[in-house]
């Protein structure tokens, strides 16, 4: 079995386990307060940890120049996301900006 299938099977099992855990254990276990608070910060932390290298690194090295099309398109997408709160618009304008900058 290759890595992808192993990942999907184990990842799926773990996901199911977490969804099932407290429905099954109701009354026998309470989520500790610290975990409850940590959960709140998982999405911003994980997503940023993926976004930053995509925008700021080119071939593994920091690239803060104006020639970094992904950085510029990403910054534009952040502004669009902040003001529009519209997912599809953010993706479409971000991709459009990338294509435009790359063809310059």
């Amino acid at each position: 079995m290759n890595d992808i299938w192993l990942t999907m099977l184990l990842g799926g099992l773990i996901t199911f386990g977490m969804r099932f855990s407290l429905i099954y254990l109701f009354g026998k276990f309470e989520i500790p307060e610290a975990l409850r608070r940590a959960l709140h910060y998982i999405p911003p932390a994980v997503f940023s940890a993926i976004i930053f290298p995509e925008l700021f690194l080119s071939d593994g090295a920091l690239n803060l120049s104006l020639a970094n099309a992904k950085l510029l398109a990403g910054l534009l997408a952040i502004v669009v996301a902040w003001f529009s709160r519209n997912t599809l618009l953010t993706i479409l304008l971000g991709m459009a900006a990338l294509f435009l900058l790359q063809s310059l």
Binding site: P43, P44, I50, K70, A77, I78, W82, T87, T90
Partner: peptide, 15 residues
């Protein structure tokens, strides 16, 4: 690149 853009769209409004 649509992937990081998707993540930007998801988390920026929560900031």
């Amino acid at each position: 690149f649509a992937l990081p853009l998707t993540f930007i769209a998801m988390i920026v409004p929560t900031m």
